[in-house]
């Protein structure tokens, strides 16, 4: 498969009062044409910053991209002049955000906002852009789109606004759609509608999606590849079957066993002890070490690199060859980390 976007060794640093914070530290990612890559992590792990760096939208100051490269069709986006970058944003790579409520400008109608994007990137007259806008809104499932063009954002529900955001992002047929927590602010029934819409649009246009989320259910149902991010680095990367079927990093394993799953009532929840480390002062060696069940001497000193375990499945753990879900089950059973089942009896 053709690699469309390749991020290698990306480093982003934010200057804070307490010193420089490494928000992204050596991230490598690849997005194949026509597929969906899920980027999973907890808040503050650097997943949104990674997305913003792709479009070079890091607020600066305080943020700086300090290293690495982002290759899009062979061109390094980080080295492009700002003018070329403007052409890429929205045209080749576009983005939708978590809050549909604040991503639209409340003083313009949605028609004006969609037309603005189209006229900026494609040489079209206002009338042509209007026609295109109607077609796109129809495509994203907005009823009576010609009338809806004249409405203001506050006249629409959250789900409708997210559809409009998707319409705007898709108006120039981008190659890559970056979706930063697109359904987190929406109710589950609306989430289902939006995900279905994204899936069917991908089937039709063949664009690639970088889907950022903390919801494992969303990733499992949407992505073909998954990257798990912890403390500014990727800790595990692989196909969705590899990650969900055969996770090899203790953080991934901990994450999967700590969420309640419907229909598995009574299963005890594992708890990853402690808190996410502060990006200003990461622990030495492996950053997951203070919270890890398998931490050893080696983890104190050496930061484990992201190493291939099997074809295409990589994990950043010194022991990823030996740790798997069976070892994990044994370990968590004996460590008495779990609530006994009598609670649910």
């Amino acid at each position: 498969m053709e690699t469309l976007l390749k991020i290698s060794n990306l480093k982003v640093c934010f200057d804070t009062d307490d010193g420089p914070a490494m928000a992204v530290d050596g991230v490598d990612l690849e997005i194949m044409k026509g597929t969906t890559l899920g980027l999973v992590g907890e808040s503050g792990c650097g997943k949104s910053v990674t997305c913003l760096s792709v479009l070079r939208l890091i607020p600066s100051p305080p943020g700086r991209i300090t290293g690495g490269e982002i290759l899009y069709k062979g061109r390094n986006l980080l080295a492009l002049p700002e003018k070329d970058m403007e052409r890429i944003r929205g045209n080749d790579i576009s983005m939708i955000f978590q809050e549909p409520m604040t991503s639209l400008n409340p003083v313009f109608t949605i028609g004006e906002q969609i037309k603005e994007v189209i006229m900026l990137h494609q040489h079209k007259t206002s009338a042509e852009a209007g026609e295109l806008a109607v077609r796109i809104l129809d495509k994203v499932g907005i009823p009576s789109p010609a009338i809806r063009l004249k409405s203001y954002p506050h006249q629409m529900s959250g789900g409708m606004k997210q559809r409009v955001m998707i319409a705007m992002a898709l108006s120039c047929n981008p190659e890559i759609l970056i979706a930063d927590e697109p359904t987190t602010a929406l109710d589950v029934t609306i989430q289902a509608q939006i995900l279905e819409l994204m899936q069917s649009l991908q089937d039709e246009y063949g664009m690639s999606i970088l889907l950022v989320t903390h919801d494992l259910g969303v990733v499992a149902s949407m992505a073909s590849h998954v990257a798990i991010m912890y403390a500014s680095s990727i800790v595990e990367y692989g196909s969705v079957e590899d990650i969900f079927g055969n996770p090899r990093h203790p953080y991934t394993l901990g994450l999967f066993t700590s969420i309640p799953v419907i229909g598995k009532r009574g299963r005890a929840l594992y708890v990853i002890p402690g808190n996410v480390p502060d990006p200003v002062s990461f622990p030495r060696g492996c950053r997951f070490r203070p919270r890890c069940l398998f931490a050893a001497e080696q983890c104190m000193t050496q930061k484990p690199p992201l190493r291939e375990i099997r074809h295409g499945h990589r994990a950043a753990c010194h022991f990823s060859q030996t740790i798997d879900k069976y070892v994990w089950k044994e370990k968590t059973k004996t460590a008495s980390f779990l609530i006994s089942d009598e609670q649910h009896g």
């Binding site: 529900s157 029934t189 289902a192 919801d215 499992a220 969900f244």
Partner: peptide, 25 residues
């Protein structure tokens, strides 16, 4: 039933069920 079906399980083998609820509240 709609709520249960819209809840996504973290298991990639299970494909998403068709959306049952259309429209908004």
């Amino acid at each position: 039933i709609a709520l249960l079906s819209a809840n996504l399980l973290p298991e990639p083998g299970r494909k998403r069920r068709p959306v049952i609820l259309r429209g908004d509240v």
